[in-house]
Amino acid sequence: MAPLKASPRPAVVPPPAPIPVTLTVNGVERTLHLAPWTTLLDALRLHLELTGTKKGCDHGQCGACTVLVDGRRINACLTLAAMQDGRKVTTIEGLTTGDSLHPLQDAFIEHDAFQCGYCTPGQICSAAGLIAEGKATTDDEIRELMSGNLCRCGAYPNIVAAIRQAMTIAGPKAEGAP
């Protein structure tokens, strides 16, 4: 078994031209000119410099890039910014109101629900989506429905505790996004 021989050279197509994309990010309408190959994740991180949303794998396998689009949690790495044109995007930066933290943010600090902090914005946005969905009532359901967010530091028990606390405050059907 030999490695694959380099394949015949593909035609070189110049990079795609930018197109206008309008997103309402954390309540502010932003129009960007983006090449269509720009993912929502890279649009946030590289073009809007909202680096709170993290890139942990870029392939939908870790959940670090979780944001809320029209109030629902998704992986920002697996959608093109152009595909979300006109939609409302809430990132970790948008959960804070002025100086006050979202109840989930408070609960994450209180329960030490993170260590390195890299998966944390995705965990919190995912938890906000989870609470809005209203499908989890037990700890085991929280565990299952938060399993799309890896935490390599292993803060899972504290993450569950923090979400449980925030859920009690917010009520199971409360809006995750402000």
Binding site: G52, T91, E93, T96, L101, Q105, I109, Y118, T120
Partner: peptide, 21 residues
């Protein structure tokens, strides 16, 4: 004591190696 860098980490204000420009 709760982490002194906690607020930065939960608000997206902690910046990692690929987040400077």
């Amino acid at each position: 004591v709760s982490r002194v860098d906690g607020r930065k980490k939960v608000t997206g204000d902690a910046h990692y190696a690929a987040e400077f420009t």
